[in-house]
Design a protein around this nucleic acid. Sequence first.
DNA 1: AGAAAACGTTATCTTAAGATAATAAAAACA
DNA 2: TGTTTTTATTATCTTAAGATAACGTTTTCT
Lengths: 199, 199
Amino acid sequence: MDTLKAKYNFREHLQPFVVFTNDEWELFCSYLEFISLKKKTYFIEAGKVCNHFGFVNKGSVRYFHLTNDGTDITGYFSFENEFMSSYTSFLKREPANNYIQALEDTELILISHKSLQEMLASEKLGHKMERFGRLVAEYYLCCYDDRVTAFITQSPEERYIKLLESGRDILRRMPQHYIANFLGITPVSLSRIRRRILV
Amino acid sequence: MDTLKAKYNFREHLQPFVVFTNDEWELFCSYLEFISLKKKTYFIEAGKVCNHFGFVNKGSVRYFHLTNDGTDITGYFSFENEFMSSYTSFLKREPANNYIQALEDTELILISHKSLQEMLASEKLGHKMERFGRLVAEYYLCCYDDRVTAFITQSPEERYIKLLESGRDILRRMPQHYIANFLGITPVSLSRIRRRILV
DNA sequence: AGAAAACGTTATCTTAAGATAATAAAAACA
DNA sequence: TGTTTTTATTATCTTAAGATAACGTTTTCT
């Protein structure tokens, strides 16, 4: 991985959340880790504590759950230039209840929990990192809020149509059965919905 | 409302998120507003921007959506000693898509968006308020994450049983048709589920 | 206390989702 | 290139959820 380019790209995509001075940026970068994940390998597995918060520099990942009867249910995706973590596990220091798997060869920029704590506690970066953390959490909170609202106010068909209208990457890049899981239905059911709304 | 007692209680319940020195606390308090909400009145209505983040000192509130065909769908509740806001609207400064209504005579401690911005920008409170905001957002993020996971991995019946096992306040204090909405199903359907699991 | 509203259950009917299996097409791979 | 594997659709059957209405009970209101 070209870490120089990766850093540059990361800084770019951090702008909506935090803008660093050059000095701060150098310090911040000293905490970063860069890893590559081969297709189909795991970033985190259920039962293990997620120790990193990440940024997808290249590639994409899939979040999924394994239910008691062994069914694989996809809950979310992160594409390049998006954050990625088993966030609840990372924050609570509890075992994750989901897996995160690379869907293609993927480059990640990681911040370990320990590094984050150090930055939060540091004189130079602390304040800015608190803000960064707040804005990231708020951003995802709003996303989750939308999603919960969709589950309680809309039918599966309505949720799918909304997703279509949103034009999100998911539609172009993910197989349909993952999308079905994401919408809270079975792949067979989504296939039927698609036929229904075509007529 | 006894604002002295309310402040004391608020400080107590803020502890998991932020611990203020006495000086900081005085300053913080100078930004607070105290209001009482009569039963059935609204804290926020859909279409209006939510300008306050609140804490329920006494009473309880219900969050609900009105769908296009006029159906009222309850999405959430806040009881005493919990936070309360149309958070997405508050954060994004966009019109809310939901209502928040007092279920009984309710006492609220409020922070206006303007006050919060001032605190965040202030020398004395800024850093601590960033952290406070971060921890609150993270807390709710985890709650939402659980809820979304329940929607995609569990059946309505399983969700209800989990709720039963959780022993949450909702069960004791909310009418069943609100609980049904909260679980993403109709009241009639919840009634059937209850009968099913009794046998 | 009496009237009105809200609530929970039940019944009926309709609709759609889950489970499962078969099939065909597309993609991955080796 | 030829072979798996993955994917999407379709069919059948079963199950449960939505819509609606009726009913009795409880709660709220005045």
